[in-house]
Design a protein around this nucleic acid. Structure first.
Lengths: 297, 297
DNA sequence: CTAATAGTGTCTTTAAGACATTATGAA
DNA sequence: TTCATAATGTCTTAAAGACACTATTAG
């Protein structure tokens, strides 16, 4: 193999030594991370359990384009790192957390997605226990805030074509942080027929979210909702000790649907192991604390 | 919003008009597509049904690096197209097929994956009915061939660590096309603990497959195997009319496991609708032909 | 005692696994 | 008639849905 010579009579070693990259145009490659966490709401009634909220981290843009809008944490990839390393590096700068659940989502490559130039975005999904995160919010240069995620109203339209199917899902996203309310709508169209599948995520409304980041957030939510049902991914959102009711609330907030207690425990308690710790000081029966169990799958 | 001015007193419009990209290093971005199809083997016994083989398309490299090795069809992305459009364009050049099932797999970004320079690969999974494909095999410049996929022996080792889990899966891949036999081994390590998940796909052996393409092929096989069980993705490999036994054989070849007929039909016949056509000329009872049904899911 | 959550029992429904039985056509 | 596949029936096992019932605590 080492002895093979190309049409110019060069070995691979010689070829590489002489190689000079062409000067065709190259894209900038950014990473953008949708990092989710779950926090508790205040509850005044001493008997009731506090509610849970799903949150994502956004950074206020301090320069053009999208000056004043809010963007996902991220940045450009360096030549000596993988996209995953870049995502982790940027996340550490923003959240102070080094070790975190991170999974590649999708590479968005519409040529016009950044008005400045050709930028692809390799997006990531991250999950973290809110207790571990130290958000340096209100940094002088960049303002980072956690926004509560609400996805009200998801409308679905299905057209059965002669030779295929068209499914349109309208997602309405609302991101809330104190007085700041950002929102957007994404129309996900799936066109399936003999000639293949065409998925488009079209941004139909956008208030205050930079670039095409609404689309990335919706994509991340879809992935999270899908995976929660058949993996133990949700446990990355939990602290070390938690009750099964806590876990159930996290599932409910992700899926947007109440779960039946008995069935939920049958299905998901296998992802956990009981400890001898119990909750206390609640106005009702104490609850056993569980811990994550590492499963073979 | 349009009135916002940045610290230099510029509006977004003015900023963009004056914007000049920095001259930091950018990666080249390639697309590489693993295109699967299923073909029939010869069967001399007139009573027996022909067997099925899973195949992928590879192109023989005519220049360095990896001169003489076989690579996935692909190429560089142009500034006016998405990665998906680039994958489709390259695939059309190779297979003559325009409309095909295509789904983004993963973006591989190890800085050293191409010995020439910094190249990321946005990989795609494609599925096609073998009847529709016209492979211009033996083109003068580039040689394209369909290789039979064999993934013999998949060894799994699981280590339970104190605070997590380590799962190592060894994949052995064999690609056969006439006398040409390519092979490779990939070690997939999943390290899961409180500090996140770490997936690595390490190439431990490689005979005749260019770049890190063994890894991409293994990744595509994993995705195909996973999705076949809960989607109708496999139907993209079928011709317009097919028997349920044909469909079952396709599932079996992808999953590498025999399926029980009754259970298979209960589960997957909902993805199809019966036609009034039947097979004929077989040395046994004729079989009903089915057609893909477009499901709402 | 009360309001709220914790935790379990059980009946029903649905899906999947296992395997057996009958049907049919070309040579 | 035979061989190989086609197609369906049925019993078993496992998982999920629905809902009711008992237990336990702070105030």
């Amino acid at each position: 193999m080492e002895e093979l010579k190309d049409k110019n009579g060069l070995t691979e070693e010689q070829f590489l030594a002489a190689y000079r990259p062409g000067d065709y145009e190259r894209p900038s490659v950014a990473v953008d991370t949708v990092i989710f966490t779950v926090t508790q709401t205040k509850e005044d009634n001493y008997r009731k359990l506090p509610g849970k909220e799903l949150k994502i981290l956004l950074i206020k843009r301090g320069g053009h384009p999208y000056l004043g809008s809010w963007a996902l944490p991220g940045g450009f990839v360096n030549p000596d790192e993988t996209t995953e390393q870049a995502a982790m590096r940027e996340l550490k700068e923003e959240t102070g957390v080094d070790n975190i659940y991170l999974e590649q989502l999708y590479t968005f490559s519409e040529p016009e997605r950044d008005p400045r130039m050709w930028v692809m975005s390799c997006s990531y999904l991250a999950l973290a226990d809110s207790g571990k995160i130290s958000v340096e919010a209100g940094d002088d240069a960049r303002q980072a805030e956690w926004f509560t995620v609400k996805t009200c109203a998801t409308e679905e339209i299905i057209n059965e074509l002669e030779d295929g199917l068209k499914k349109v899902t309208e997602y309405k996203l609302e991101l809330i942080c104190g007085d700041i309310i950002l929102s957007g709508k994404v129309r996900h169209t799936i066109l399936r027929n003999d000639r293949g599948v065409k998925n488009t995520y079209e941004i139909t409304e956008n208030n205050g979210i930079a670039f095409d980041h609404v689309r990335i957030i919706i994509y991340a939510l879809e992935r999270l909702r899908g995976k929660v049902k058949y993996t133990d991914i949700a446990l990355n959102l939990m602290p070390e000790y938690f009750t099964l009711t806590d876990l159930q609330r996290v599932y409910e907030i992700i899926l947007g649907k109440e779960q039946l207690k008995a069935a939920f425990r049958r299905k998901y308690s296998v992802l956990t192991e009981p400890t001898d710790k119990m909750t206390s000081d609640a106005g009702h029966r104490p609850s056993r604390l569980y811990r994550r169990k590492w499963l073979t799958e």
